[in-house]
Design a protein around this nucleic acid. Structure first.
Lengths: 208, 208, 208, 208
DNA sequence: CATGAATGAGTATTCATTCAT
DNA sequence: GATGAATGAATACTCATTCAT
């Protein structure tokens, strides 16, 4: 009896948090950060306004939690790829595929996050403090860093030209991946799209 | 006498319009669309609030006018490049350079525009209607189309692989350009950066 | 065994109530009524939120209980003074001293109470109902009444002028005492301060 | 025609400000600072919410403006009294009368102001910042200072005992005045009440 | 009795837009 | 045309209180 009640209790409270997160995911994804209102989130989560503030300190922290919980498992996956023993050039394609899969899944939310964070140099230009912006920056800068690691490994083995700046190439590759996702260039066969990108990146567009 | 007064009147009017546009450019560029307030714009333009609404129907249309007036001369330039008789592969580098120059100049405003517009499929997700969003989309889709044209020309002359989808490649190239600008990868020597990008795009990252 | 557990239970209960009252004393004293939150009180009392509502019907009644429990022993003391056989004019100084001692001890809490209650004629002006306000009014009106009693005794013995309205004089004397406390005019030697006030009140400021 | 229109324009805009101030006076006076809502003020002022914020930066500054505009003419009056050539002891009664008149008129608003400001040593205990509190403190500390000045003048002429601390006496006298006002001890004949207070203060309560 | 998760009424403030002068 | 006073819809966040366990 006891553990059942406790379980219910546990699930109940976890449910509220989960319901809020799911509602927030939906609302932020479709409305963007600014146009997403707490009122809409609680309506969707079927909860009271105060409940949101029991679990999250404010709207921004709710958003951040969402981002974090989404990217966490992804981080694990790409670290696995980076540290695998796959040949470097194949690793490039594998990691592209992982990115495509992740971004395709969370395209809308990520679009919003990048809306708020990316490329905004001047502080005060968004509603976030510089400190907050930094938190988010870390989030995808780390993942871009993973691409860079793979490129550096390939370079160290003489497979990629020394003239190619790994940091710049990683950012470029990342932006192409994002563009493909946001432009709906990713068909049903993600593997094929990954191959297309990898092929273009590695061997160039020129006919030989 | 009369035509002088009218001229003054005319100039005054144009001045007001111009002052507002210049102030709007500064404010939108530094604050982004949402955080830019009409109050701040009129303060900088040294004009009255109502005056803004004499020349522009609302904030959004003011922003759009700004975007339009900035991109117009750029459109002319790249059309000149596209229609020139330069060899196709060199034309790729030339057009990349033109993009870098333009985006570097208007980096902040464009960043803001893309913030608001890019990848936002669902209407109601920004403060803009779908119709409005489309207007902006056209703006840079047309320019991406110019890149595509250059690639197609090169393809038709057998210089670029048939397996390379021109539309996708153009979007990818475009996103890399934008990334370089927003990430401040563009040094003082824009020509060199253009060459770096073109080289990577055309010949790939792999060591031969 | 059983009565021990019950005793513990009993003490636990009383402890909880006492802990809450002590925490409430600290929080109300330092934050004032409105800015004192139940959350802060339970944090300090190391108890659950519901527990507060087991012992007190609401925040206001908790506050009232506090006021009551503080003033009760004071009431006893001044009644002792009033009913003592001390000569009336000396009694004035003695009662002033008692007031100074009490108010100095509970200065902060009393300040808060008077903030909420004092002089608020119209109901709805504070968070308290008129009925609630009256309860508090009674609290210090009764003590002012004690001063009045002493003055009336002195008057009946011809020691104080008939032209002096005892009620008004009592209120005036009371307000001076309170002012001395709140303005920190009370030095270490409370007896001396009491003498200063009594002397001024009884013999006036004029040089003779 | 022109100056008429301008006058109307002038009056219109001044009217709004005035309407808001009058409404704020009524609402703050009857509800106190915290329970006074901007909504209630605009309802009474028959104006839009934004209008309030066109004239006043926020609720607190609206309140402060009210206090300032009320006390300004009073300051002038008591300075006139202090600097007059009236005999010092009569000046005491005159200034008491001025205080009674002012406080009787603005009793409710002043009650509220003192609620928020007076005697609150610990910062953070009210909703006002320490800086804001200081502004208000100055307001009535200056007026108490005026009483002190009168007492010092009398003292310098040997009319008031040296043993009587002017600062303490001024505060005491002030508190008595306030108490008389708040307790409704001030009858229709303010002059008589002023005399009662002055007489008690100067000559004491003791029968001679 | 003790607990704390859930609740929602209540509120100051911002800012694009209008319109009378 | 130029102006700016007036407007009010829209929104994040707090906190006393309840009640199921």
């Amino acid at each position: 009896m006891k553990h059942i009640r406790e379980n219910i209790g546990f699930h109940d409270s976890q449910n509220k948090r989960q319901q809020i997160l799911e509602a927030a995911y939906a609302v932020f994804s479709s409305k963007g950060y600014h146009r997403a209102t707490v009122d809409e989130i609680i309506a969707l989560a079927d909860t009271g306004k105060g409940t949101v503030y029991n679990y999250f300190v404010n709207k921004e922290q709710l958003f951040y939690t969402l981002i974090k919980e989404c990217s966490m498992p992804f981080q694990v996956i790409i670290e696995g790829i980076v540290n695998s023993s796959e040949p470097p050039l194949e690793k490039v394609e594998t990691i592209i595929k992982a990115f495509l899969e992740f971004y395709a899944k969370h395209a809308n939310l990520w679009r919003v996050m990048m809306h708020e964070v990316r490329g905004f140099g001047a502080a005060g230009s968004s509603n976030f403090t510089q400190e907050q912006l930094d938190k988010y920056q870390v989030c995808f800068c780390e993942t871009i860093g993973m691409i860079e690691k793979v490129l550096l490994e390939a370079q160290s083995k003489g497979l990629i030209r020394e003239s190619c700046d790994a940091t710049q190439a990683a950012h470029g590759l990342f932006s192409v991946i994002v563009t493909f996702v946001f432009r709906d260039f990713v068909g049903e066969n993600i593997g094929k799209t990954a191959h297309t990108i990898a092929d273009l990146f590695l061997y160039g567009a020129v006919e030989r």
